[in-house]
Design a binder for these strands. Structure first.
Lengths: 351, 351
DNA sequence: ACACTCCTCTGAATCGGTTCAGAGCCGTAT
DNA sequence: ATACGGCTCTGAACCGATTCAGAGGAGTGT
């Protein structure tokens, strides 16, 4: 196997300087047509494979690639319908700017502490779904790369993108209490690393940021409607069928089950609806169910799901724009909207 | 702003050779603890940001990144539920191997002929959704990078991953004819670049590969059941609501509408079901609808969709494994499975 | 003719590591 | 003692482009 052909070889063969050869490939209009033809002919003749990306990158410093960094695995990000909306928004931003998007998740190959963060090739990062553990932000900053955080705390990055989680949760709960529900269960997202599923108690702020804020919002609106704290029944799930079923068992295998459930994601809500049906309970006749996120499937669920729509695509897009400098860096709060569909109704009158 | 600290500076400050300093960061066990400590201290003191990815890449040649290349934009890939299953599978393969995944789509910034293919940083490519135009395969091969094709023709790549599209289409059509349907419409995926929506005529092979094979399968099974070719009514859609509605208008605004529809994707099928409902037609009472792909939403559709399940995640995963050398390169045909749900039924008896 | 621009092309200096052959050094088997 | 194998560490070559100051030449205005 002969050696790889380099730009230098092409330049030599064409009888021009290496600088000119480089221009032929990168700034063709700076070169006379004949010179260009000569270089191209030489390249063709030698079987030159084009400028090597790595070398260009080393010299020019721009990878033309931004990375979406997530705490889950890359596969989970894509499978999760909220995550992939973020991804879609980010992809859109990349497309518009002509930069590539790479998604880097937590992989088995990186050791516990390891993370491709330190080695990933990118011009910038979007951090999604982080709780500030492992000081990822610090490590990126140390590399001197810019980053934007989605749904995370304010860090050393360029900016953040998020929604008013607490307010949105309040609006869902207010909708439920407004319908007349008093005793209300909540199915929470994961509240901390490696925590087991189970009933939850306050204070709710001391948790992973997003679930903490939403729980606080639920609790606040529940109380604001004049209900006793004991009638708010939050349960910690792992967003899987097993823990959702456990939560439902906890809520409904009791003498005084709730008449409504606030699920902290649409995915949880839909699993809950399926499980409730399996238990012989009808939604919304026996139990109202509200979700959170506004994934597309929710509209087609049976019954269509009441939820809070989050502008997930916009989050991804905005984060990317900030990163790319198209949008001024800031701590951006995007609006949410409560969408009332058929999965919630007034509680059946007690006989 | 002072100059960036380089490994060389760290080595000098620690009083060791550059090679040793390099080893501290890459092969720590080859270095004595004290030497390592000295280097680390120097790095800390100087504010060294760690080995720069680009430089490492240039010398070592491995980017630790594979690219999923698609003909659509990256955003479309993610939004499309079949595409994202492929992506999820690929992501899983990447996670397992500890390499990153970048998705590169057709972006506005790349000129008509341009494509990041020539410049994208990656150790290998997975080509998805290509029809062999623009000679993408050739361009990748020219760069000397390995690639695997999903749902595409056999190229110069390592291998291909696909399913028996024609056979799968036959099985759907056979299911429909088996129920007693004779006059059957088909809603096709895009059959060529920039073609307008409209009725389709044979021969069906002369089209984009996948749609061509499926159309051929439909037609073959339809004929095999003893039906007249004129009772097979294929229509070319663009996978959007407008063209699906046009197709349905073409099929049902006639004296002898079909009693069943074979949609070439679940997305098309679900749009068709919504449009049929808008037309006052009931599925499956008035019209049976079958899809293709087996996306998750299909199971929750109203009514649940009869379809052919394609192992999309497996496609992505298998492609990645071939690329990474974990699986022997080959032309792999993955199995499909017909899933009969409630959207298909025997045609209503003619009065 | 002269001065001055404008444009193209040259040449050499980076970019920041990784790698590898071999020099030193130390302990052990003969 | 002597030879030898095994570890560390050194030093310099090399990866393959991009970039930039400036040389040379052609064209333009006076």
């Amino acid at each position: 196997m002969t050696k790889r052909v380099r730009l230098k070889d092409v330049a030599a063969a064409a009888g021009v300087s290496q600088g000119t050869a480089s221009n032929v490939f990168n700034k063709p209009d700076l070169v006379t047509p004949q010179m260009r033809a000569a270089v191209e002919a030489a390249a063709e003749r030698l079987g030159y494979r084009g400028p090597q990306a790595a070398a260009r990158l080393l010299r020019s410093g721009k990878a033309g690639l931004v990375a979406l960094l997530t705490d889950e695995s890359a596969a989970e990000l894509v499978q999760n319908s909220y995550g992939r909306r973020i991804l879609a928004g980010a992809a859109q931003g990349c497309d518009a700017a002509g930069v590539g998007l790479s998604i880097v998740g937590r992989t088995a190959a990186d050791g516990a502490a390891g993370w491709s963060v330190d080695t990933a090739i990118a011009d910038g990062f979007v951090l999604y779904c982080f709780e500030g553990e492992d000081d990822i932000a610090g490590r990126i900053a140390r590399r001197g790369l810019p980053f934007v955080t989605i749904d995370g705390p304010r860090g050393a990055g360029l900016g953040t993108v998020g929604v008013d989680d607490e307010g949105a949760a309040e609006s869902v709960m207010a909708h439920l209490t407004g319908l007349g529900h008093r005793r209300i269960g909540a199915l929470s997202l994961e509240v901390s690393r490696n925590a087991d599923p189970g009933p939850l108690t306050g204070p709710f702020g001391a948790r992973y940021r997003t679930p903490g804020l939403r729980l606080a919002g639920y609790a606040r609106a529940h109380a604001a409607a004049g209900n006793a704290p004991a009638d708010f029944l939050p349960f910690h799930t792992l967003s899987d069928e097993r823990s959702v079923a456990m939560g439902l068992a906890w809520l409904f295998d009791r003498p005084d089950p709730p008449t409504a459930i606030a699920a902290m994601s649409d995915a949880i809500a839909m699993m809950a609806m399926a499980e409730l049906r399996a238990r012989g309970l009808s939604v919304p006749d026996d139990v109202s169910v509200a979700g959170f996120d506004g994934v597309t499937e929710g509209a087609y669920a049976d019954p269509p799901l009441t939820t809070v729509i989050q502008p997930a695509e916009d989050k991804g897009l905005a984060a990317l724009e900030m990163l790319l400098g198209t949008r001024p860096p800031a701590d951006l709060i995007l609006p949410t909207e409560l969408i009332v569909r058929a999965s919630t109704a007034a509680p059946r009158r007690m006989s």
